[in-house]
Structure formats: C-alpha cells, structure tokens
Design a protein around this nucleic acid. Structure first.
Lengths: 220, 220, 220, 220
DNA sequence: CATGAATGAGGATTCATTCAT
DNA sequence: TATGAATGAATCCTCATTCAT
C-alpha cells in the first residue's frame, strides 16, 4: 500500500516533469530552456529534477519517445484491419504525411528542436521496409532492391513533409507523393490513383493531456 | 595603394578565421567551440573575431558558403559542355552523390555541425528545378508537376547520401538512385541505365588551402 | 523548521551582499565595482549574487533603502512625542541636515555613487508636504501654495547639505536654514529663532552592523 | 595660407566630433555611446578621434562647455542694459528657469547624462553671489548672510527646475519662485510681484547648428 | 525523496586605445 | 594628419550540478 502510494507519486512527478518539458519546448524552443524553468512549470523543487532524469537531454528524449509512441500506436490501430500490402503502404504514407503537418505536438517539437531531420514523423522506418519486402515477395510490388527503394521513399517523405510545412509545396503534394511512391513500387497508375483517393480512417492521435491522464489512471 | 593593402589584410584575416572555424569543427564538432578557440587557432586577438563576424553562427555559415561555393564552381565546370537535359541531370546527380561521400571538407563539417540534413552537398536546388523544367518543356521528360518531382528528387538524394555515409547503403546505391530518378522523369530504363554508367569527368573540388592560396595570389 | 533555517540563511547571505556592496562603494566609488568584487568581499560564489539581485543597480538600491529605512525609523522616533507642526518641521529639518553631514554611511555612499543629488538624506519628501499642509490648515503657517513651498524647501535642504559637505558653508548654516524656512512658512522671526535653538533629542541612527546583528538576533 | 587652411580643417573636424557627440547624447543617452559611434556620425575615421580628444570624457565636457558658454553669452546680453540689482536678479532667475525647461539642448543633455544635478542650467553661481552682495551693499536687499542666502536660492532654482521638468510642478512655479526669492531678499511683496511680471527680453540662445556655423565663420 | 541555496566554469560581447601605414 | 585593423582586459550573465538539510 505504502509502496503503491509511493510509486504512484513518482509517476505523477515524472509525468509533471515530462509535461512541463514538453510545454516549454512548444513555447520557447529547445535552446532556451533551463532545468529551473522545467521544475518551475512542473511545480516541483529544483533538486527534484535530478531524482528523475540524470541530465536535461534525457528529459527531452523522454518527451520524444512519449510522442513517437503515441503516434505509432495510432498508426498501428489503422493498419491492423488491412491486409493488402499496397493499401497498407498507401494508408501509412498518407497518415504519416498528414500527421507531420497536423499533429502540433510533433511538428512544433521537432521544428524547434532543431533535430528537424533526425526525426521526422513517419511510420517506423523498419516497418516500412518490412512492408516493401512483403509486397515484393507476394508479387504485388516490382522492386529489385527493397533497401534502396526503402531509402528513396523515406527521403521523399521527409523532404516533402518539410517543404509543405514551409509552404513550398501545397497539401495536395501529400496524395501525389503517395501516388508516385506506389508507381515506383510497380503498381499501374490507375491503381495508385485509386489507392491514394481512398478515405482515411478517422483514428486520431490522443492529446497529450489524455496521455498524462492515462498514466495517472493506470497508476491508480 | 593603402586601400589595397588594407583590404588585402582584411581578406587574410577573414580567411584565417574561416579556416580556423573549419578546422575546429572538423576536430571537435559544433557544440564545443568557443570564439576564443577560434581566435586562438587563427592566431588572432579575441576581439578581432567581432570585426568580421557579428556572431558565431555567421562564421559557421561563412564556412558552409565557402565550401558550397567551391562545389558549385566545380559542378558548373562539368556541366558546361553538356547539352542534353537528361545527361546534365544524370551527371549532376552523380557528381552530387559522389561528392557528398568523398568531399571530406563538406561531409565532416556537416556531420559535426548537427545540421546534417539542413544542408547536404548537392546541386543547387534551384538549378535542379530549372533542369527539370527545361527537360519537360523540350519533351525529354514526362512530368506533370515539376515542383513536386523536384522535391521528391531532392529528398531522395539527401536521404541516400546520409544512408550511404552511415553505412546503411552501399556505394552502388548512387548510380541506382540516379537511374530511379531518370525513370521517374519518364525515360525508358535502358536509357536511364546507359546514362548512369557513363564515366565521370575527372574535375575535382579544390582543397580549402588552395582556395586561401588563391586569395593571396590574386591580391598580390 | 527547515523553512526557518532556509530563510535565515537567505537573510544572512543577502545581508552579506548588501554589506559588501556598501563597503565597496565607500572604498572605491560606484563606477569601478564589478559583481565579482562584491561576491569576493561577501565571501560568496559569483553566481550567488544573481540569486539575490537581478542586476547590480538593484543591489545599490537595496543599500540605499537600507540606510534610508534606518534614517526614517530614527526620525519617526523623534517626531512621535511632538504635536506642534512648527516644532515638528523644525526638528525634522534639523535632524535631516545634521544626519546629512554626520551619518557617514549615507554621505559617503551617496557621495561616491554619483547620485549625489538624486538622493540626499532628508525627511521623507511626502511627509514634509503633509507637515506643511497640516500647519497651513491649522493656521500656524501662512502659505498660498504648499506644493511650491514644499519644493522650495526641499531644494534648499539638498543644496545646503551639499554645500556644507563640500566646505562651502559652515555648519552654522544648518540652524540658519531652518530659521529661513520657518520664516518662509510665515512664522515671526522670534519664534523661528527660538524653535531653531531648541536642543535636539539624542536619538541616533543605528550603525549598519547593528542592523545585521538584529536580523540574526530575531531569527535566532 | 597653408597654415590657415590646415587649422580651418582642424576646427571643422573638431566641430564635427562635438556635434556628433552632442547628437548622440540627445538620441541615446550618456551610457551607450562608443567612440566608434561618434566617429561614424562625424563621418571621420576612428583613429581621428584621438587627434582631438584624449579621452571620451573630454569630448563630453567639450559639449557641455559649448552649451554653457552659449547660455551665459545670452544671459549677459540680457543683463547688460539693466542697472537695478533686484531687476537683474529677477530677470536672471526668470531666464534661468525658462531655459532649464525650454532649451532642449541643455535639458536633454543634462537629463540623460545622469549628472542631472551636478550641472543645472542657471546663471553662473558666482555671478549670483555678486548680484546679492551688490544689492545688499546698496541697501536694496536685506540679508544677513549673503553666502547662505545664495545657497538657498541656488537650491530652490535647481529643485524647482527639475520638478517642473518632471511634471510635479506647473510652469507657473517659475515666476512664483522668483517672487519668493525676491521676498527672501527683503523686497516688499508688491515689488516682488511687479518685477516678476515684467516681460522677458526676446533674446534667445543660439541654436547649436548656428554655433557650429560660427566656429566655421570665425575660422575662415 | 524533496528541496533550494550555493557554486563557478564557461562563454559572449564590448570598447577604449594603440600603432603601423 | 588621417585611418582603421588589431587587441585583450574587463564584465556580465547563464545554468547544470552538487549537497546539506
């Protein structure tokens, strides 16, 4: 009992610190955040920070993992019912491109972090490679070198995402990119076009506050 | 006369500062460089730095421009005799991909600077767009939306460059990428393959020290 | 308990910083004091300064307030038993003029600070205005415009204080000034003279070190 | 001839430096002015400054002297035709108080310099003492201690000037102050009132640019 | 565990002044 | 005389981290 209360409190404090870090990054960007800032927002003593994170960098990474985790969970929820490799890739790309624009948590965080290209919101890279390989093996895709193709696609997604965000490309570039990718995988343009136009499932990424609520609920 | 002497000295000091910055980044990475470090290496008074760069960031950018400038000069030298849009693009991509791996000045600098993906050594982005548009207008390429195609290509080059550097892709990915791009531009695979295999002109980017030497020679 | 200990320590450090600032101004004047100097004298880490004062100027002002506070406390002690407006003003002026000469803390600090005339140790300006208004309302003083009269008096006190300090006027200028002021307030010269010659109460401003001692005593 | 040209050029450069210093103080206040700023505005090489002023402080003082000199010249022009000591004092005070408000050169300079009270625009202090003594000797004034009276008056003028500038007193405080002073000198209120209301001579302080023009004209 | 006072290395920046040309 | 490049002492300020309570 005492144990439970204790560990519950730990989770709470930790969540508060992560949340505070997140909020500050959204507000002020990566560079100008001190640990004091974080503990102030988290309503916690300065020294307390070090009971949870050995270094500031680790706190930032915790936030990133938090966001990425929620993104992947959502995407998997969408992919689950799908079977056809082409459809899976089409939907995944669409979702990735859309979220990279609209998930404010993620875009702002990444934008300000300066890590812009280290991490761009897209389907787990590894997963995409598996998707391609599966499609190739099943004869749905025509690719000689899945690894290279995989790299080419990743490159396109990242760059297009950035360019849209910067206003250099219109949002219509999102389905167009997906269509190009599908063609590059060997699908006839007709099919590519059809897959691209299929409506998106309405599943959304949970808000940050909900995530925190979840932590609390779980720890209760 | 006095003027000439003065501006000659200015160039010299500036070159020394840029060179020192460059060297330090190669040695220690971006974060850990103080302005004192730079002026020490440049054998120059601390205050002198501020006679040339208002901020450290501007010094870094000067180095980047320096390198990029020399890269572009070399590439233009190679492109000059070429007429066919497809050949021009093939050669440019090949050169860009190759240099991104082999131009140690550039790769290391960018690598350590942390800007890794903001700036990848490749053909002037604007120029590539023009190349595409010219090929499209002349009927050599089949592209609906040159701007999007341009973005997709840029994304591929950047990412592939990085992946090769990281060892995730073999060097053979370079010609393969070019081939994919040419196909994406609507060329038959045979042609794409042929253009990709053409031997590269042996023109090389001048070393940094030579560039400095040039300044001195000119000002003499 | 912990709280009490903490805030006691805070007071102590703060007192040390103020005391150090004070001492340095007395020794070297305003311009030549760096924050490092202060923390060195205070036997405290450099960074500690910033836990107490956001800026050097604020530290100086804290010293001034400290001194002025003690001055006002003393003056109020003297004024307390008095009723007659004329007597109150006479005593207040006398005390102000005297202290401006003899309170070494104050004079030296102000002298070296270069603010010489911004702040001269004298009765709270607001209080003087009230004194005048009260005397005018009660019919003891004859003044048309209390605000102007107030300004004229303040100006005289400040300047006379300075001039005495500089040796341009004798100490006898102090009662003489008071006498002039009382006459300006409409009192007959005989009364003015009489009030001016009344002996001063012997209450003195506590020394700085005693003040610090008090803090410690109270917090014990 | 060559000599004359040379020294003319010297005067010109010196005037330019003083003018630049003046202008900068008006614009940015005392603290934040570097010698580079001054030489830039003066359109002169940095090193040139040191051919004219050994130190920055000396340049500032040159400006002050310049302004004070012109002020005194104007005042003397007004005083010249007057004979009666009371009139002379009345006119001088009026002029001093007025200029302290309206001579933007002076007020701004002094305001920003932070020396506010070291130098307040008023009739040469020495001259005022002579005025008082002359009036006392001639029986026009009734003062026991001219030196003290002199100090009291100076104090009043300075403080009132400041208070008007700060908006704590109305402009009507100017003639009122003069009237109080005259009464303090022993004049009947009727006379004081009359003298205070006499119209001011229209002589004005020359503008700064004219002064510079004068230098040039003289040096021609 | 929580706290927050103390710390001081580290870095950016300014600017009066010198001096060679 | 005029110039402006070079200089480096001086200073302010930040902030991650420690540690005693």
């Amino acid at each position: 009992m005492a144990n439970k209360n204790t560990s519950q409190k730990r989770e709470l404090t930790r969540a508060a610190l992560i949340s505070a870090t997140h909020e500050l990054v959204l507000r002020r960007g990566y560079e100008k955040i001190s640990i004091q800032d974080i503990t102030e927002v988290a309503q916690v003593g300065l020294g307390t920070f070090y009971n949870y994170f050995q270094t500031k960098q680790l706190a930032f990474e915790a936030v990133l993992e938090d966001i990425q985790g929620r993104f992947n969970d959502s995407l998997n929820l969408i992919r689950q019912p799908l079977k056809d490799p082409a459809t899976i890739i089409a939907v995944s790309l669409q979702y990735s491109l859309t979220q990279a624009q609209d998930n404010r948590d993620w875009t702002t965080f990444v934008e300000f972090t300066g890590l812009t290209d280290q991490r761009v919101l897209h389907q787990d890279a590894e997963q995409l490679l598996l998707d391609i390989q599966r499609g190739a093996k099943g004869g749905r895709f025509k690719v000689n070198d899945p690894t290279l193709t995989h790299s080419l696609i990743i490159g396109m997604i990242r760059h297009v995402s950035r360019e849209i965000r910067r206003g250099n490309l219109a949002r219509s570039a999102m389905p167009e990119t997906t269509r190009h990718v599908l063609r590059m995988l060997g699908l006839p343009d007709q099919v590519a076009k059809a897959l691209t136009q299929a409506p998106m499932s309405p599943v959304a990424v949970p808000r940050r506050t909900e995530a925190v609520a979840t932590i609390l609920a779980v720890s209760a």
